[in-house]
Amino acid sequence: MFEARLVQSSIFKKVLEAIKELLNEATFDCSDSGIQLQAMDSSHVSLVSLNLRSDGFDQYRCDRNLSMGINLASMTKIMKCAGNDDIMTMKAQDNADSVTFMFESPNQEKMSDYEMKLMNLDQEHLGIPETDYSCVIKLPSAEFARICRDLSQFGESVVISCTKEGVKFSAAGDIGSANIKLAQTANVDKEDEAVSIEMQEKVSLTFACRYLNYFTKATPLSPQVCLSMSAEVPLVVEYKIGEIGHIRYYLAPKIEE
């Protein structure tokens, strides 16, 4: 049997917001170590990797590994029924064809449960090797969201160039061009507002704006975002999810023809 209890159901709501525009359905793999999800968008240009560790839940039990194929639009409907302060419990029997979501109000005067049918999904798992990236950039997540939004007005692509001095985001199109440079922050009073760059080698890569904008739906999950880049490999955009885990997005770079 599988049972996972999360006092802050808002975390799960935010996770769902962070993936539902990129994916229509996904398999949640539940094991003793937690809940994992890996899925590519329908065009196979990007990949989402979610990890929620079992020790981050308030209660967690998973007797047998369980793969839950879930339609994310259906799950969104159910999560809309949860209050932000509700306590959430997910429950499924071994080999179940449905999962139950239970929501309790903080004062425990309202209890609701919703059963959702599971799907059988063909899933293509990709092995992503541990990589030492040439550039690792940490910046405020709201700043990154703003940059992606602003630059998407200029063109379909964003060039991200990283040097020791800073990181530059550029876009160009019919109306003209745009460049946004961020320098590493000198004095960091507030860690959440810092821009930090670890660079082994300069990197400049081109990415589709559209996907970067999808990734920024994860902004409410974390005050900081981490971008990892190396030449000719996918960009990694990582948001920490409190003390429970992380969501990583991988985006294949564009190549000049």
């Binding site: 240009v45 990949l47 092995g127 589709a208 490999v233 991988y250 294949a252 564009k254 190549i255």
Partner: peptide, 14 residues
């Protein structure tokens, strides 16, 4: 002209 790569060209099926 830019061409969009797919994930499968970077990572193998596991």
């Amino acid at each position: 002209v830019e061409e969009q790569n797919e994930m499968n060209s970077f990572y193998q099926k596991s």
